[in-house]
Design a binder for these strands. Structure first.
Length: 1108
RNA sequence: GGGCGAUUAGCUCAGUUGGCUAGAGCACCUCGUUUACACCGAGGGGGUCGCAGGUUCGAGUCCUGCAUCGCCCACCA
């Protein structure tokens, strides 16, 4: 084997071909087969517009490690892969391309055309990220790829929406949302980030209408958004300002007593300020309170609207002037106030972010409206309002102020709170009788959020690390309703049709009137859910709350009509895919309802659902719900129309109303029945709330069981400065670049190695220029992975496999093997045990450490080195066999982490040594991907062997250390350095002498000495450097090799350190409390340590004596 | 404002129920191309574990406070 043959491991030359072999072999294909043991992971679907980034690479590495290991452990494994349609991001990407290339907006194209273009784009580019998963070696079942907008997911979305709507858990409301004026859509709270910007704090005066003697002529209010004053409909003061001040003061004093010193001055100042307010402000506030109670009005400047002065606790007497303007349509808190006081809501903002024409309550256009309408809301509009107020002498002062302003994640524009029609999922607790009617609320949960909280608290879902449970529980416990509508075109369109009509007309439709409407109302509640809402009012009529359900609350509607006619909106949500027997064949009821609705002038809601709505269903929608049998049948639609209850299918069971197949009695041959609930969900902590919580919720609601038992939260990778990796900063590392430079295994190794339980990990980033001129970001971190793979490759192919000539394995009794054989088998066993421990707790980094240490520092550094001389001699057979066996086991356990290189080596090992083992020989499986995971044979562990080997290693290390000292000094003296020392003397007890005699050759070659003497109880050699390990001394006579005086300083320094250490230990042992209270083993360790140190000191003192 | 995390060698990080003469990889220094590997081998230097108290026989580890950095959530007339 000439040197020129050896070359480094070249990942590029093997990875592609190996991946093809795996796919051709169908190893990743999942199929329910009745095996009890199964393991399923659903991938967090990456954004279909996206490319793989390092976070994906990390997350998918971890998932693949789990999946590959379980596959090798003989479980039926399924890693479900797919992508997310990512509403806003995808639509924005395609819109941008079209705008740039064709100069057209989405409005120019129209809804259908834009959606078609996005699909086109998705087909063309959407596969990229899945291709990149293949490059990484991810063992997903690519034949079952899903997409959150595919037919399967759409079906699940329709079913879920219908159920929630039917159960009264989805409602449509006028609510304040975060409005993105650029994208003209509502964005979720989670999609809003806050940024501090420079702004102003404006103090205005509002005139009191007809002030009485002794009453103030003006009220003082302050705002950071002056333009919203156009929409004010009240001014509030606190109902009990004196009591409120008392309460605040009491709280401050309480805080003062417990707070830290540095906070005290601030609190004291606040208390003082309260006292000041009590004097200067309180009388006015009390007066205002009385005025409010008397129903006094204010005149809103500029628009001359009469608005009431009201009492509400939202007005804080300790803040500002104690009065607050109320703008229900443009501020979330004011909205609440408006609800409490039944205040009118006046909207002055257009969808595209301009001041709207101001429509007063009586429906008339405000005569002053034209001055402002059309101005940009928060810029020109604001300026004009302030100017006009100034002209009217109503501006008291304007302060500079930093304002923390919400911005849209997507457009980076400031968010405007905007009153609009939105759809919500009710997360809060329901009235008991309502909750009891809803079968989807399991375990007697009071509401959706509570149900998901309970599941985690019961331990049905466990977080790793456990601390993240708190994030989940805290967030869900707020039970904030979930806004699920988005003003986009790309996504699942809300399956509700509606029409506005007079209540009187609606009531008149029963039994006559428009034909289509008549048809519509013949539909039973099972076929569609019909809901009637008063336009502009708070009344609504919902069939779910009515009994019997089929009446759609007609009685109530008629009763309401008696009080006076009004405009109502009728909403229809057709039941999805109901194929009723007895109706026209081949026409799903959903389509029929839809047709009737459209004929009757009903229009489908134009919004689409929040992307997270379909993501929330991911673990069960992708497995086939609702078509497949769910493990818990009760979870399915429970209400049925009267005319199909008597029908039963062949199995004698009643058919399910959605006509799902019922071939398998227990449903376990469907993907859903077999794989749900899945096993582990691995994700980043930022979506614990957005995604994990909602999956648990919908899983329980739809299926009746949690979607997974364990949630693994991995750290976030930052750059070297602790910043997030991002496109704008240009500090992102592209995993594909890393694969090209270092190989997929190196990428995976390094990422797994970094995956500790911390919350962030940093990765220093470097620029590198490629030959083609492209500049990429790399990180030296990946060298560790590359080096490891290369080391494994070199050791395996370059040494072990090449050394297997004439391999002829026999059944070996481990007890009869040589020390080093038994040692490596013992160490291997320990390694396997530690690996199991680490992996069972999702400690990926620890797993890597265990494997790294064993492969490199034990197998390569010691076992392989010790086998070299044996391979040339009569000991060849057992050495080959143990080498091959340990490599076999090592490849198996390394495979989930670094699948390519291990598979490549495996093939070669199979050729050179088809049968492997120790006591039992087994044929190596053809493919490692599917090979058996090693089982631990605890009998191979041998403490006595390990301690003997440890002594041997210590002796060798001692000689090496001395050799380095000698060569160091010879180097300085320009004398030739020595590969081997002439003589080493080991002085120990009889066992040590025997050990040394037995392994003389090893010691000589590994330590590097020509002669080795084992002596006992004889005089220490003179003129020698020595090291003491345990009770054994190792001496090398060096007087002829170097001038001993040269080493004096080093040895003195060493002596000093040892003496210090001994001092500490002796002090500890001198402490009676320690000896009595500490664990006996700890005391024994200390004694041992003291003895060791004393021995070492004695030896060093002897050197120093030699020098004089 | 509430919650969570981090602070250990020049850099990036381990350090399980307190027992440590505090570890690893990279970088650094010395020596070495003996036939698996220079993406290597042997050896070495480098740390009062952010700061201050406390509990304990014993603290990197537990408690309290402080400082700095970061993340999440809420709110700000």
């Amino acid at each position: 084997m000439a040197k020129s043959e050896s070359k480094t491991y070249d990942p590029a030359s093997v990875e592609k071909q190996i991946f093809e072999t795996w796919e051709k072999g169908g190893y990743f294909r999942a199929e329910p087969d009745g095996r009890e043991e199964r393991f399923c992971v659903v991938i967090p679907p990456p954004n279909v517009t996206g490319a793989l980034h390092l976070g994906h690479a990390l997350n998918n590495t971890l998932q693949d490690i789990l999946i590959r290991r379980e596959r090798m452990r003989g479980k039926n494994t399924f890693w479900l892969v797919g992508t997310d349609h990512a509403g806003i991001a995808t639509q924005a990407t395609v819109e941008k391309t079209i705008r740039e290339k064709e100069g057209k907006s989405r409005h120019d194209l129209g809804r259908d055309e834009l959606v078609r273009r996005i699909w086109e784009w998705k087909e063309k580019f959407g596969g990229r990220i899945v291709e990149q998963l293949r490059l990484m070696g991810c063992s997903c079942d690519y034949s079952r790829e899903r997409f959150t907008l595919d037919d399967m997911c759409a079906k699940a979305v329709r079913h879920t929406f219908f159920k929630l709507f039917r159960d009264g858990l989805i409602y449509r409301g006028k609510r304040l949302v975060n409005w993105d004026t650029q994208l003209q859509t509502a964005v979720a709270d989670d999609e809003v980030y806050h940024e501090t910007v420079k702004g102003h704090f404006y103090h205005f005066k509002y005139p009191v209408k007809n002030p009485q003697p002794g009453e103030p002529e003006h009220l003082h209010i302050a705002t950071t958004r002056p333009e919203t004053m156009l929409a004010d409909t009240a001014v509030a003061v606190h109902p009990e300002p004196d009591a409120a001040l008392d309460k605040v003061e009491a709280e401050l004093k309480e805080k003062l007593s417990t707070s830290a010193d540095k906070e005290k001055p601030g609190i004291e100042a606040a208390i003082e300020d309260l006292g000041e307010r009590r004097k200067s402000l309180l009388p006015t506030l009390l007066k205002l309170r009385d005025m409010a109670k008397a129903g006094r009005m204010m005149i809103l400047p500029l628009v001359d609207r009469e608005i009431p002065l009201i009492c509400d606790t939202w007005a804080k007497p300790e803040l500002g002037s104690g009065c607050v303007k109320i703008t229900p349509a443009h501020d979330p808190n004011d909205y609440e106030v408006g609800q409490r006081h039944d205040l009118p809501m006046i909207n002055v903002l257009t969808e595209d972010g301009k001041v709207a024409e101001i429509i007063e309550l009586d429906g008339s256009v405000n005569p002053n409206s034209s001055k402002y309408a059309g101005l940009k809301f928060n810029t020109a509009g604001r300026k004009k309002v302030v100017e006009d107020l100034e002209a009217a002498g109503l501006v008291e002062r304007i302060e500079d102020r930093l304002i923390d302003l919400g911005h849209s994640d997507r457009s980076k524009m400031p968010i405007e709170p905007f009153l609009s029609d939105q759809w919500f999922v009710r997360m809060s607790d329901l009235k008991r009788e309502h909750a009891a009617q809803i079968e989807g609320l399991r375990h007697h949960a009071s509401g959706l959020a509570q149900m998901a909280v309970d599941a985690v608290k019961r331990g049905d879902v466990r977080f790793h690390p456990a601390r993240y449970e708190k994030t989940y529980v805290d967030w869900l416990s707020e039970k904030r309703d979930w806004c699920i509508s988005r003003q986009l075109w790309w996504g699942h369109r809300i399956p509700v049709w509606s029409r506005v009509m007079k209540l009187s007309d609606l009531c008149a439709q029963t039994g006559r009137g428009e034909e289509a409407l008549e048809h519509l109302f013949e539909i039973t509640p099972c076929d569609a859910v019909i809901r009637v809402e008063e336009v502009g009012g708070n009344r609504h009529w919902h069939d779910i709350d009515r009994n019997p359900p089929s009446t759609i609350g007609w009685q109530e509607l008629r009763a309401a009509l008696q009080e006076g006619d009004c405009e109502v909106r009728v909403l229809i949500c057709p039941a999805p895919n109901l194929e009723h027997k007895g109706l026209e064949p081949n026409e799903a009821i959903a389509d029929r309802v839809q047709r009737y609705a459209e004929e009757a002038g009903f229009i489908q809601d134009s919004d689409v659902l929040d992307t997270w709505f379909s993501s929330a269903l991911w673990p069960h929608s992708t497995l086939g719900w609702p078509d497949a049998e769910a493990p818990i049948r009760a979870a399915t639609v429970r209400e049925r129309s009267p005319h199909d209850t008597e029908q039963t299918d062949k199995s004698g069971r009643q058919p399910l109303p959605d006509g799902r197949g019922s071939d398998s009695p227990d449903g376990t041959d469907s993907l859903l029945g077999y794989y749900y609930p899945t096993s582990v969900l691995s994700t980043a902590r930022e979506i614990i709330t957005l995604w994990v919580a909602r999956m648990v919720m919908t899983g329980l609601y739809n299926i009746g069981d949690v979607p997974f038992s364990d949630v693994v939260i991995h750290p976030v990778i930052q750059d070297g400065q602790g910043r997030k990796m991002s496109k704008t900063l240009g500090n992102g590392v592209d995993p594909v670049d890393i694969i090209h430079k270092y190989g997929a295994d190196a990428l995976r190794f390094t990422l797994a190695d970094l995956a500790t339980e911390t919350q962030d990990i940093r990765m220093p980033v470097q620029k590198e220029k490629l030959p083609d001129g492209r500049e990429i970001n790399i990180s030296p971190k990946f060298e560790k992975g590359r080096n490891f793979c290369n080391k494994l490759w070199q050791a395996s192919t370059g040494f072990v496999i090449r050394g297997l000539d004439g391999y002829a394995p026999t059944e070996l009794d481990p007890q009869t093997l040589r020390l080093e054989d038994r040692w490596i088998l013992s160490r291997m066993t320990t390694c396997l045990l530690e690996l199991e421990q680490a992996l069972s707790r999702y400690r990926f980094s620890e797993s890597m450490n265990v494997l790294y240490q064993f492969m490199w520092n034990e197998y390569c550094d010691w076992y392989i080195e010790m086998s070299k001389s044996r391979l040339a001699g009569p000991e060849r057979g057992p050495a080959q066999q143990v080498l091959a066996y340990v490599l076999d086991q090592l490849l198996r356990v390394l495979h989930p982490f670094i699948p390519f290189v291990t598979e490549a080596i495996w093939t070669e090992l199979n050729t050179a040594a088809p049968n492997r083992g120790c006591a039992n020989l087994e044929k190596g499986e053809p493919a490692l991907v599917n090979a058996k995971w090693p089982s631990v044979d605890a009998s191979l562990r041998d403490d006595a062997v390990e301690s003997q080997m440890a002594e041997l290693q210590a002796i060798i290390k001692a000689v090496r250390e001395i050799r380095t000292i000698v060569n160091g000094h010879r180097g300085k003296e320009k004398q030739p350095t020595m590969r081997t020392l002439p003589l080493a003397v080991v002085m120990g007890d009889r066992d040590t002498s025997k050990l040394v005699e037995t392994h003389r050759e090893f010691i000589q070659s590994l330590a590097g000495c020509d002669l080795l003497e084992a002596r006992s109880k004889e005089a220490k050699p003179a003129g020698a450097l020595g090291r003491v390990v345990g009770s054994t001394g190792v001496y090398v006579p060096v007087a002829d090799l170097i001038d001993l005086k040269q080493v004096r300083q080093d040895e003195e320094k060493k002596l000093e350190e040892l003496q210090k250490a001994l001092g500490r230990t002796e002090k500890q042992l001198g402490n009676e409390d320690f000896v009595q209270r500490a664990a006996p083993t700890v005391v024994e360790q200390a004694r041992q340590r003291a003895a060791d140190l004393a021995g070492q000191i004695e030896t060093l003192e002897q050197h120093l004596a030699d020098l004089t």
